[in-house]
Design a protein around this nucleic acid. Sequence first.
DNA 1: TCCCTTAAACTAGCGCTGTAAGTTTTGCCG
DNA 2: CGGCAAAACTTACAGCGCTAGTTTAAGGGA
Lengths: 221, 221
Amino acid sequence: MPRPRQPRLTRQLIVETATALIDAEGLPAFSTRRLAAELGVRGPSLYNHFATKDEILDAVADTVVAAVDTSGFASRDWVAALRDWAWSYRRALTAHPNIVPYLAQGPGRRPAALAMADAVYGGLVRAGWPPARATHIGAAVRYFVAGSALGSFARGFVEDPELYAAHYPHLRQAHRLAEHQQSVDEGAFALGLDALLHGLAAEYARTIGPLDPVESARPSG
Amino acid sequence: MPRPRQPRLTRQLIVETATALIDAEGLPAFSTRRLAAELGVRGPSLYNHFATKDEILDAVADTVVAAVDTSGFASRDWVAALRDWAWSYRRALTAHPNIVPYLAQGPGRRPAALAMADAVYGGLVRAGWPPARATHIGAAVRYFVAGSALGSFARGFVEDPELYAAHYPHLRQAHRLAEHQQSVDEGAFALGLDALLHGLAAEYARTIGPLDPVESARPSG
DNA sequence: TCCCTTAAACTAGCGCTGTAAGTTTTGCCG
DNA sequence: CGGCAAAACTTACAGCGCTAGTTTAAGGGA
């Protein structure tokens, strides 16, 4: 088949279809031929628009991260901003959990991921955290969010009562975790995030000073 | 080649070689043929000892988790036990970071992973946490550890000063993160874990009662 | 001691994979 | 209107997980 009158593929269409395919069938099922079939085209045609499979995955990952809201760092105190960011980050990732292992490799050269890191780090430094501390805090929250989105804790337990009854006395109810997957995972995230922020606020009060709720909105002088 | 006088493969030898291969070359490079070559054998021979590739990965994952120490839950107060566990867990995972994405899918039917979950959950319940809270706490710490071991935060940033200078004003020093990878990642983990535990201890004091440092070592009556 | 079963290696092959190379036809620009 | 770039194509390679069937040795029973 020759060049068509109207191009059948665009970068945007490829990325959207790839996202849908990964959401629906998982990362292992995502292949260039499978994606091409979904687009009504043969595998190698994709290489007219992307150089490698990873470049497609990068584009998918970055559109996912682009949905994360970091605006709190411009308008709210740092604790509230961190909380808003963490929840928004988690929502963005859990909407597309199958891409998380890929995305967790770091921002690399993806613009949305770098913009997010820039906003978070900048907000924390502006709030008074020393640069090294700001890096640690951003990383710690990312660890927590990525870990929570990477794989459902609740779904990690097999629905087989006999498995637990035999050898793991405290896990007798573990086979029921999957039923309550969402509330377990969200509850764990909420508890952990609140505890983390509580501890960070205490550390701030101890080493930096009283929390000023609008410091980030005032001029620094 | 027929059956040899002495078997060239054993489950243990396969698992050890697989671990070394994954550590050295990463999960994507780990294939049955590659592993077999490392063992001086052809690919399909492995299937005399394991039913599927995933079964090999399960065995690798479980030997990694088997190195995690949960003994603190039997002898120390729950905060100290959580701290010891989290560090031991992190050490075990960062010793074999390439297997973490696989392992993060949950304990499944792997005995060492289930034994760890059993010890943690049992210890928290014994310390006075309600069952649902104990589940959340165990999950939250797992999120944090898994996220921290999944991919180095510091190594996620490319060593290319120009990339940051152009568009990400706060990330001007980000290209130097990789140099200090270990101290950045460990510092972030230490800060986050301490904050998390601080917050959990506050929550415990508020909703359950004063912290009893030896409650877990006493009979409950 | 002979035989039969089982174990543990093999080869061959299926239908995948990512991607490189070269082909064909179309649309657009000078 | 000639020529080039674009965007699809086909073909092909090496490697993937895994199945099926084959070969030979080890070990147990008659």
